[in-house]
Nucleic acid binder design. Structure first.
Lengths: 357, 357
DNA sequence: TTTAGCACTCTCACTTCGAGAGTGCTAATT
DNA sequence: AATTAGCACTCTCGAAGTGAGAGTGCTAAA
């Protein structure tokens, strides 16, 4: 089982490039003409025959050009693709947009999704940064009416969660504020587990509140990823291989289904090297709906503090070079932003240390 | 210009029903056979000819069945459609789901979008309840590091807005809390305008904070609608008239475009009678992208406190009866929920009255 | 090892054609 | 006067047929 010759690799690359460009089977003469190759079409044909035998290319029918197989794309992505970078001007423009709207995570996510979709001309998905373990930063209780209280939980990292509580009896705002302040000072910087062990520090109303806080925090912990932002779904629909069939519908349905999406991200994030880019081609045998699609995924964030996922979904015939470069760039950019905003923030309170008690 | 005879109305109704069901042109004999009519196909043909002349039906080509025109749908929706109700069991089931997750507006929105999409088998859109004028309920300031402060704004109605401030010099948490508390008591229940006139009550740090609060509140006021929740986009793709063409792509693109969506909702909400249902057929000459689509829109909320919009988007050939009934039901349900949660809440503080100062 | 030449295969666009669906009109019927 | 049977006419749609062209694989020569 020899590896491919240089020339074979070169031709495979050309075929993939050309197929991505035109979406039609690539013929030998076509390659020679378009890339002014120093060999005849017959030579190319011989090489194409080898690549077909190896399983990297296939023919839709006996006498048609070649089309890359899943294996072909995989070989290309893992061994042949050369790193490309976004043009400097584009990068500066994007950075600029993000730094314009400082500190608004939700806006960042939307912008990131929009830019990914636009640059890759595919559908994009971005999950909000999600702490591996939620840690309490600040608790606020606000009386609304009667026994009804709005609980606002600010996590280390700035995530905010709210919930309405129904108390067993009415409590005044002053008392609520005091309780919230007390709980905040006691448990600031702690995760759910730590708070649980220190639960006995409070009693009465405060104990009830701490229960709710724990419930909420555990719920946050149990979610694999933050909210998912999507964009550019219609980009996928405009691809020729999807206009007629209902493949597109199935693929997009996947993105509409929160469960499936969580599943997809969960499996991926687990096997993920931070900073690296993962490319899933043709659903990788697991996702029937994505048989004709590929996904380029990356992650971002400050490891140990908060991480998120981002990626683009397009037809298998997507421009991997462009997709990978934009995912990588956005991944780094968001990492910088998140780190800058959250990192020091959480470093104020190294774990296991109560400030003033 | 006489009105239609009863029989003509009846036949128009049948044609529309049948076309919605089958998506193919409706023939005279077909109607007689399927609905066991007491007349011959020739009679039906004569009536069809009249309806065609009046502009309610058209023929794709000389010898084909009839297809409703936009006018036909409009006549049907405004004069012929008989009010249908969701089955009682369905209604109970839906209500139950909402009351399960009490007081979580975001969840409600998602659920509402999901149910609308599912029940109408079309794409759905729901905007979060949005106060006509944001009124401050509670302000919180949380020190993060250095001169960086997290400002959390709780509005009357429970909406939460956050923003990171950069102060000119570091300020301790205690001082921040005190400032927040002071501002809260001063301006609780007030809208941006009222706060602006009472701005001179504070100075120094607090004055700066109030400026930021105002800035944020005015930004909230300037947005026409809250966040938009979408669901069931793929439902539209499965409709036969959209599988091949790129009409679907254009229509869905509209929903992806926040600007266009805002525009759509803005124009509609303005001309909207509360509690009523508005049906836009074929883009109504304004939205080129929706030429083949119809939209059924309703609004919900407590007038004067917070209102939102909800609706479904499908092909012109959508089941208006079902769509209208589900939109109306959800509109009422959400109104009840929102009123129940927010109404009394805002009634605590009738405007222009400072509690303890 | 490369290439020219050629026979062979398969697709695709185009045309033809007949069946069938559905209409509109006319004349007969109620 | 309204309804209906009968019928000629129109148009679509799918099937079948066809030729051009694209592209290959193979063979033999360079």
């Amino acid at each position: 089982m020899n590896d491919l010759t240089e020339r074979q690799k070169f031709i495979l690359t050309l075929v993939i490039h050309e197929y991505i460009r035109t979406a039609t089977p690539v013929a030998s003469q076509h390659l020679v003409a378009r890339y002014k190759l120093d060999m005849s079409s017959a030579t190319v044909r011989n090489e194409l025959a080898v690549l077909t035998e190896r399983g990297y290319l296939r023919q839709p029918h006996t006498s048609a050009g070649r089309v890359p197989t899943e294996e072909g794309y995989r070989y290309f992505v893992s061994r042949l693709i050369q790193a490309t970078e976004l043009p400097d001007s584009t990068r500066r423009m994007i950075s600029h947009q993000f730094y314009q709207m400082r500190y608004d995570v939700e806006q960042w996510m939307r912008l990131a999704a929009s830019i990914l979709a636009h640059q890759s001309r595919a559908a994009s998905l971005v999950t909000a940064p999600h702490p591996e373990k939620a840690r309490l930063k600040h608790l606020e209780l606000i009386a609304t009416r009667g026994r009804q209280v709005l609980m606002v939980l600010v996590m280390v990292g700035g995530e905010i969660h709210q919930r309405i509580l129904i108390l067993s009896e009415p409590v005044g705002q002053d008392q609520l504020s005091q309780a919230a302040h007390h709980i905040t000072t006691l448990y600031q910087g702690k995760d759910a587990e730590q708070i649980r062990t220190l639960r006995s520090l409070v009693e009465g109303l405060e104990a009830d509140v701490v229960e709710w806080v724990l419930e909420e925090m555990e719920q946050v912990d149990s979610v694999v990823a933050g909210e998912v932002y999507l964009d550019g779904l219609t980009n996928v629909l405009s691809e020729p291989e999807f206009t007629a069939s209902d493949e597109a519908r199935r693929a997009l349905k996947l993105l509409e289904e929160p469960t499936l999406l969580q599943d997809l991200l969960a499996r991926t994030v687990l096997t993920h090297t931070p900073g690296g880019i993962q490319v899933l081609i043709g659903g990788e045998g697991t996702w029937e709906e994505l048989r004709q699609c590929s996904i380029v995924l990356g992650s971002y964030g400050a490891p140990g503090v908060a991480v998120g996922t981002l990626g683009v979904l397009g037809p298998m015939r997507m421009s991997y070079g462009r997709a990978i470069s934009v995912v990588r760039f956005m991944s780094n950019l968001l990492s910088d932003l998140v780190t800058e905003t959250l990192m020091d923030d959480s470093a104020i309170k190294p774990e296991g240390e109560v400030s003033h008690e």
